[in-house]
């Protein structure tokens, strides 16, 4: 199933929004799969995560799609719900054709409490559809992803997390092309950056 998704996305990427001629699909995807990740691609990391469905997940699986990515935790009472809402708002601002292709990814800081099952429950509460990927990881994996994104975080005495408020836009190669810091504004810029990267 994953292969199919990748297949379609590769084709879309290579030829823009147009429907690709059937005969060229295979060649395109073979080339993509063989090519190493670019020097700035986050997908070079070898850490892996687990989806809220309990499936192992490498970030490289997102290759070929523009990505809106944030780190959060489900019991966060203030910033994280706003970040998720802002990601939804970014989605609404994307032009049709790109909106459907973008991936929305949430990775939890809370390695102890945000189990795949807890993330699945959160997906239900927030009504996040299949375009959203919710990830659980080991302390090691979460620390490394935070380092790659430039996110600073720390667990407080009561188990909650203090953290940077950061929404990151990745291009289809997995390179950071834009980051929205803080909680105020900047959604138009984020959407524009993603749309531009998706067209290139």
């Amino acid at each position: 199933m994953k292969t199919t998704a990748l297949f379609l996305l590769c084709a879309t990427l290579a030829l823009g929004a147009e429907t690709p001629p059937a005969g060229k699909k295979d060649a395109c995807c073979a080339a993509m799969a063989a090519a190493p990740f670019s020097a700035a691609s986050l997908y070079q990391t070898d850490v892996t995560f687990t989806t809220d469905a309990g499936q192992p997940f490498a970030l490289g699986a997102l290759r070929g799609r523009p990505v809106v990515l944030a780190m959060f935790f489900t019991s966060c009472g203030y910033a994280c719900p706003l970040i998720v809402s802002d990601m939804q708002a970014i989605r609404e601002k994307l032009p049709a054709g790109i909106r459907e292709r973008a991936a929305f990814v949430l990775v939890s800081f809370d390695t102890a409490r945000d189990t795949p099952a807890a993330l699945a429950a959160y997906r239900g509460q927030r009504g996040l559809d299949a375009q959203w990927t919710l990830l659980h990881g080991s302390n090691d994996a979460v620390r490394e992803l935070a380092a790659l994104l430039g996110v600073k975080y720390k667990q407080e005495a009561d188990g909650a997390f203090s953290h940077s408020n950061l929404i990151t836009i990745l291009n289809p190669q997995g390179e950071i092309i834009h980051q929205r810091t803080g909680l105020q504004g900047g959604l138009d810029e984020a959407a524009a950056a993603l749309a531009a990267a998706a067209r290139n």
């Binding site: 700035a40 790659l148 940077s164 950071i176």
Partner: peptide, 10 residues
């Protein structure tokens, strides 16, 4: 420039 990801605003 471009020494990896940062939190700079550009």
């Amino acid at each position: 420039a471009n020494e990896g990801p940062t939190d700079v605003q550009g």
